[in-house]
């Protein structure tokens, strides 16, 4: 950077960042460390920070079909359910959101801005207010206790924001590029797929990440809609787990780490797109 160094300012900012990061991450890190301890070690006083003798026994217990925990909660099933729901609804949201976003960005129709704004406002209601109506609706449609119902629900919840973020990113792409593609012989769909979407990749990835993380960690709706054990998702599993194994804290730690892992991976690999996607429109690229 070429600007005048302001040592005090930067030190202060960095310190603030560190304090906030520690404040937020310490409990998470504590849980993560706990997953490598033994039950006895967790019960010991004084409390040791680092595991004395790190072990992955807690993780083994989660997947060991003979163990007490896996008889009550089948983790492979939970994980597979969560993946099915999160991945499928992400695909639905990104594909539909792309077409809807394109329409909002490129086509002129009456009430366009109002509808796009309305989509976003609809997401500002507290989800809790929708719990009961949703439960009734799913019952009427006979979709309670089914992953398909949950996929449809998450897709409906995720579409407005995905549409909005994709539309705002597409608006930044000069229409002349598409006109140019049309002069080159492209149809509208070809110009969208071959010219516009490659340029909107950061927004598409952001929308996908945002939705995947939300769907993976959603708890409230999953907990009222899913009843049978073979349909449950990881968040419900984790909640039941906390109730069941309050004294086996290392197992709770292992389960929580496992649940958080996909989200961390998603952010680790998608980070650079994520900031770019959310900043679309802030600066001219």
């Amino acid at each position: 950077m070429n600007e005048t160094p302001r040592p005090f300012y930067w030190t202060f900012i960095t310190l603030c960042g560190l304090v906030i990061a520690t404040y937020i991450l310490f409990p998470v890190f504590w849980l993560f460390l706990a997953s490598f301890k033994t039950r006895d070690e967790l019960a010991q006083l004084p409390i040791a920070f680092w595991p004395k003798d790190p072990t992955i026994q807690a993780y083994r217990d989660l997947f060991d079909s003979g163990s007490q925990s896996s008889q009550l909660l089948n983790w492979p099933t939970l994980i597979s359910n969560s993946f099915t729901v999160a991945v499928t609804s992400t695909i639905i949201v990104v594909v539909l959101g792309t077409f809807a976003g394109y329409a909002f960005a490129r086509l002129k129709f009456p009430g366009r801005d109002l509808i796009l704004g309305g989509l976003l406002v609809s997401r500002m209601f507290q989800g809790a207010a929708l719990l009961l109506p949703t439960y009734r609706l799913m019952n009427m449609l006979n979709l309670q206790d089914s992953l398909i119902g949950l996929i449809l629900l998450y897709s409906a919840f995720g579409l407005p924001f995905a549409t909005w973020i994709i539309a705002s990113s597409l608006r930044e792409i000069p229409f002349e590029l598409e006109e140019s593609a049309m002069m080159d012989g492209a149809s509208r769909l070809q110009s969208m797929v071959m010219v516009v979407l490659p340029l909107a990749t950061p927004a598409l990835i952001t929308a996908a990440m945002w939705h995947f993380v939300g769907a993976w960690s959603e708890f409230a709706f999953a907990s009222i809609l899913l009843e049978s054990n073979e349909n449950k998702t990881v968040t419900i599993g984790l909640a039941s787990f906390v109730e069941l194994f309050t004294l086996e804290f290392q197992r709770v730690g292992a389960a929580a780490t496992l649940v958080a892992l996909p989200i961390m991976l998603v952010f680790f690999f998608g980070q650079r797109y994520f900031t770019r996607g959310l900043l679309a429109g802030a600066v001219k690229g």
Partner: peptide, 14 residues
């Protein structure tokens, strides 16, 4: 446009 067999150079090149 795609069926007119016309090529166009845009102001900002596009």
């Amino acid at each position: 446009p795609k069926r007119r067999d016309i090529a166009m150079v845009f102001q900002n090149y596009a």
